[in-house]
Design a binder for these strands. Sequence first.
DNA 1: CGGGATCCGAAAGGATACTG
DNA 2: CAGTATCCTTTCGGATCCCG
Lengths: 120, 120
Amino acid sequence: MEHCCPRYHQAVELIGKRWSGAILAVLIDADRPLRFSELAHAVPQLSDRLLSERLKELEAHGLVLRHCSDDSPRVAYELTGKGRELAPAIAELKAWAQRWMREGEPEFVHAAKPSPDARD
Amino acid sequence: MEHCCPRYHQAVELIGKRWSGAILAVLIDADRPLRFSELAHAVPQLSDRLLSERLKELEAHGLVLRHCSDDSPRVAYELTGKGRELAPAIAELKAWAQRWMREGEPEFVHAAKPSPDARD
DNA sequence: CGGGATCCGAAAGGATACTG
DNA sequence: CAGTATCCTTTCGGATCCCG
């Protein structure tokens, strides 16, 4: 019985952190640098503060690069190679989600309404 | 710009939840029903309460089956088909982690031990 | 062994307001 | 637009005790 190798554990905890997976998926899907507002628009339930926070974390871990080029009108975020190589994993997860997750069953949407989770 | 399809979002939030990814990886890797204590041993930093909690969540979402068979000496947990089909995604993530994550850099281990590692 | 209940501190998350 | 700071609520998570 392996002890679930720490590297994998780190990875899943990093990517699985609240909105990180969504942000990464959007960036991968876009396949180009995105601006703050574009990201915010792509994940509507995500607040500015959280988006900023997650972005900084992803930067710190070398998944995302922040372009604050002064010749550009605005800031843009793009994936690094490290971040980009997550694409297969994300794609697999997406495929799984398509097969198994139902939209019509918001039994787990925590970003939405204060569902009193009465499922005992 | 897609709005990062909700199904994928649900999936990443579910699997990424604190210890769920590790638990699933252990179950997939074991490829047989595991008992509570085996799971606890495989993920040492995880407390009983949390393991129980995560297990119940994974049950509720149909990823894990709990065998409380009275003919068996003890309780065992095994993956459902839904859970088992996560294997490719987990494998991809593991491969990525092997490529990019370093064990020697616990810059993000929040599960940490109470070691007063004051290195800020 | 296999958990559940409770307490409580820590941390995350949301809303709003404010700034450059 | 692209954030930051503050407040405040909720949740998470660890420890401990308890039960069958």
